[in-house]
Simulated assay, not measured.
Amino acid sequence: MHKIGVLVSGRGSNLQAIMDRIADGYLPLEIAVVISDKPDAFALERAQKADIKTVAVERKACASKEEFEAKINAALEAEGCELVVLAGFMRILSADFVNKWQHKIINIHPALLPSFPGLHGQKQAVDYGVKFSGCTVHFVDAGTDSGPIILQKVVPVMDDDTEDTLADRILVQEHIAMPEALKLWAEGKLTIEGRKVKVKA
Rank of each mutant, 00 (worst) to 15 (best):
M1Y: 00
K3R: 15
I4E: 03
I4A: 00
V8S: 04
G10L: 12
G10I: 08
Q16V: 05
A17P: 08
D20W: 06
D20S: 08
D20R: 06
A23Y: 07
D24N: 15
E30Y: 00
E30H: 06
K38E: 15
D40G: 03
F42A: 11
F42P: 00
A43H: 03
L44P: 10
R46A: 06
R46T: 01
T54N: 12
T54R: 09
A56I: 08
V57R: 00
R59M: 14
C62Y: 12
A63E: 15
K65C: 09
E67T: 14
E69D: 12
A70W: 04
N73P: 12
N73W: 02
A75W: 04
A78F: 11
E79S: 12
E82G: 13
E82T: 07
E82M: 06
L83S: 04
L83C: 06
V84C: 13
V84Q: 08
V85N: 09
I92D: 05
F97N: 09
N99K: 12
K100F: 01
K100G: 11
H103A: 12
P114K: 02
F116S: 03
G129W: 14
V137W: 10
H138R: 05
F139H: 04
A142E: 15
D145K: 02
Q152I: 11
Q152C: 07
V154F: 03
V157F: 00
D159M: 05
D161Q: 13
T165F: 05
L171R: 02
L171T: 08
Q173V: 03
A177N: 11
M178T: 12
L184F: 13
A186T: 05
L190H: 00
L190A: 02
G194F: 01
K196F: 00
V197G: 02
V197C: 08
A201C: 00
